[in-house]
Design a protein around this nucleic acid. Structure first.
Lengths: 297, 297
DNA sequence: TTCGTCGATAGAGAATGTCTATTGACCGAT
DNA sequence: ATCGGTCAATAGACATTCTCTATCGACGAA
């Protein structure tokens, strides 16, 4: 029964019987049969079919919601019982927005001190994808924006505030300034994240608010790529202060505070609103609460 | 898997492999094998055995908690999907303390108006048993004392306040009074519920508080039995006002307010603290909220 | 029309589940 | 100490379910 609910979850993710089956480690006919059996038990069609997957029926949607709960609780149970025997162990799956990647180490490092048997998998994802992954039980926690777009059924722990800096070489225009305005930044050719990233949308909004427009010379979904360009001295970018510091500033590479307005975005740890939490997740929340004052300071 | 968790729940209730198996509709070896398989999957013993059932291990306790959740959610899912097709239907299982039995009709009657396809099963139980049944998913809702003894993981909706009356014939000692004190009541030979009932414990406490002692002439676990004795005119009892009214007063049978102190006990509907609720249960909560003002008035 | 993709179906074999019958351990009473 | 009685575990047979491979039929794009 729980396997079948798992099939439904996979189907919701993959929107494709074959791929969903593969994700579950079974063949496509097995998954088809599983879903069908669930439909017979419920006495109602769950999936709209027409020689291909066409989404869930309303009943299917409700089953999907329940399946997330039930499957999630089942995993949490296994994890908890396992922890009682072997201490905290297993794999903790985290996804973070690119601009927050650099500070993940501030959580994982002390976590590992305390619980050396836990392994980590960390994904770089957009804020939207993170919520989706959380919803579908594909990750245990996310690190993302808290303030802007609606979060789902999750609990959040604030970690730090993202403040923006113009990252540019000292000898570029504006390079000698102690602060610049968004209006001024709008005049500079920038390297920015792609528009599917919330960071980019936030910066776009700030530029537009200052009467400018966002026409980045270069877009990428990788902060490393952006930074390496800026480092040549020929490009500029807008980055959170924390990230710029982590990546490393030099005499010639400066991170200049951007004012008018002095924008702040709250970033935090986000975990499924399950009660009780998986222990492996609860430990991460603890770590986040411990780390937050340091990061903010 | 969910079947196996169900076995564990039954075992917790029955504390006996054979009876638990019967409750699940399987044979004892089947249930034994199911529990054993669960233990193998978890990699840990769940049940302490020594040629008979000796309770759960600490891990077993945790699995039990999770099992309640998971099995409960699974049933709620089935119920919800069923409701989407056939409207609200199925069987609503309620347990009430004996002194509240008379007012259950105030909930079930309007409920049935709105949802004619729902069937009811109503048990008369002690307040402690009610919490146990709720915990073990054997009932969907309880009607019991809210104030006194600790409730578990439940949500409560207040329904009315229990106020105490001396039920006695008009020509008995005290029979002509407009009010009596607990100290006076303590002098009368009473018919009371058995001491496993919270109502009895409350009355005992009140009698003792007034310097008296509780030495009932007759004890029973049935309010009907108590009332029928009082009705002969030869016995007296202490009953909640509401109940006395429902059972019917006559010229010769009086319900005299008891004062010093004028004791009040809150009675309410109690449902599992599950989010979301089973629809069948949510509808009962609605009914309770609707009925509460009338009952209190 | 044809080809490729997708999901359903058929049928065989494997794995699980469930039953009856029995055993072995323990407990209490003679 | 022995004898019954109760309880849960085990053995072995049978039934059900699960999962696989192979294939089909429907649909959509070229």
């Amino acid at each position: 029964m729980i396997d079948k609910l798992d099939y439904v979850l996979a189907l919701a993710r993959e929107k494709h019987f074959g791929r969903a089956a593969e994700a579950c480690g079974v063949t496509q006919p097995t998954l088809s049969a599983g879903v069908k059996q669930l439909e017979e038990q419920m006495g109602v069609l769950l999936v709209n079919r027409g020689s291909r997957f066409q989404g869930f029926t309303p009943e299917g949607q409700r089953v999907l919601d329940w399946a997330r709960r039930i499957v999630g609780d089942t995993r949490a149970m296994r994890e908890e019982i396992n922890s009682l025997r072997h201490g905290l162990s297993g794999r903790l799956r985290i996804a973070a927005i690119p601009t927050a990647l650099a500070m993940v180490a501030a959580l994982t490092t002390p976590y590992r001190e305390r619980h050396p048997n836990v392994q980590f998998t960390i994904y770089s994802r957009t804020s939207i994808e993170i919520l989706d992954l959380l919803e579908n039980l594909e990750i245990d926690a996310g690190i993302t924006y808290l303030g802007n777009e609606p979060l789902g059924r999750v609990n959040a722990v604030p970690l730090y505030s993202e403040r923006y800096r113009l990252l540019t070489s000292a000898d570029a225009p504006l390079g000698n300034r102690d602060s610049v305005t968004w209006a001024e930044v709008a005049q500079v050719p920038l390297c920015l994240l792609t528009p599917d990233m919330q960071n980019r949308r936030i910066i776009d909004r700030l530029l537009k608010g200052a009467g400018g427009e966002s026409r980045p010379t270069l877009e990428s979904d990788s902060m490393i790529l952006l930074f390496s360009h800026v480092r040549t001295g020929r490009w500029a970018s807008v980055m959170p202060a924390k990230l710029a510091e982590t990546l490393g500033l030099t005499d010639t590479l400066r991170a200049i505070p951007i004012v008018q307005p002095e924008a702040v975005q709250a970033i935090g740890l986000v975990v499924p609103a399950r009660e009780p939490m998986m222990q492996i997740t609860a430990a991460l929340v603890e770590e986040a609460k411990r780390a937050a004052p340091m990061l903010e300071g």
